[in-house]
């Protein structure tokens, strides 16, 4: 079984008539016949009310779950036919920032960050150096030894982002990365995301904070009850001032 890219090399994400129903499909679908194309270098916001299917979209892209029907291509892989061993390779090219951070509570901030590179088979020394660099850029240099629970919400969010950036991802996915943060902390996170975007990553951010969308700009997609009800379109991308 092969998963050869169908769309061009510039297509990072492509959904064709994607429907996702949880629990075998008796319930109302979380996503319904969604079509979507995201090109390399785009900065995309996905917004919508709670339960509209935003996290489901992210979970489909990371292959945490499979679509009920339709076709998804991510970074050239057909997500319905991808092999188990290829999922690991795909995820190494993605940075994922989870809504609940998913940091290991019994490891230090440095160890948590290093883990992203170590699982790819990189040595400890190299991983440590890279993690220190990234943590420094995030302004977390002094907190390397701290455990996640000793960090503030904003610091934990930054830690999750630092880990996601370890392998210089081609695609960065963030599910409500500013969810529980005040505006200042939220903007700090957004600045780091735009920095990663400028460094070459395609970025997809889920948020329901329209103020941030206004400030940062970029493509906006709105979901409602599992359908795409608004898409500002791929071409419209405002540059940062």
């Amino acid at each position: 079984m092969t998963t050869k890219p169908v769309s061009g090399p510039d297509t990072v994400i492509r959904l064709e008539n994607i429907t996702k129903s949880y629990r075998g499909g008796d319930s109302i679908p979380a996503l319904l016949e969604v079509c979507l194309t995201i090109h390399r270098g785009e900065f995309v916001f996905v917004t919508g009310a709670s339960g509209s299917g935003k996290s489901t979209l992210i979970r489909l892209l990371t292959r945490e779950i499979r679509a009920t029907s339709g076709k998804i291509m991510v970074l050239g892989y057909d997500m319905q036919r991808i092999r188990r061993s290829q999922i690991a390779l795909l995820r190494r090219r993605m940075g994922i920032v989870f809504q609940d951070f998913r940091l290991l509570e019994d490891r230090s901030l440095l160890e948590n960050t290093m883990l992203a590179m170590k699982v790819t088979g990189a040595g400890s020394a190299r991983s440590r150096k890279r993690a220190r660099d990234i943590l420094e850029r995030m302004g977390l240099s002094g907190r390397e030894k701290a455990r996640p629970l000793q960090l503030s919400g904003g610091e934990q969010q930054k830690a999750a982002l630092a880990r996601a950036l370890m392998n210089s991802p081609a695609l960065l996915l963030a599910d409500e990365p500013t969810g529980n943060l005040d505006m200042d902390s939220a903007m700090e996170i957004m600045d780091l995301l735009t920095e990663a975007h400028r460094a070459g990553a395609t970025v997809l951010v889920v948020t329901h904070n329209m103020e941030i969308v206004e400030k940062v700009g970029g493509r906006l997609i709105r979901l409602d009850h599992g359908r795409v009800v608004y898409d500002s379109g791929p071409a419209e991308r405002r540059e940062d001032p």
Partner: peptide, 16 residues
Amino acid sequence: QKEIEIMKYLGATDGY
């Protein structure tokens, strides 16, 4: 379990 889950999302292979 939690660590395994996280490592999977970071791109760890089954062997690792």
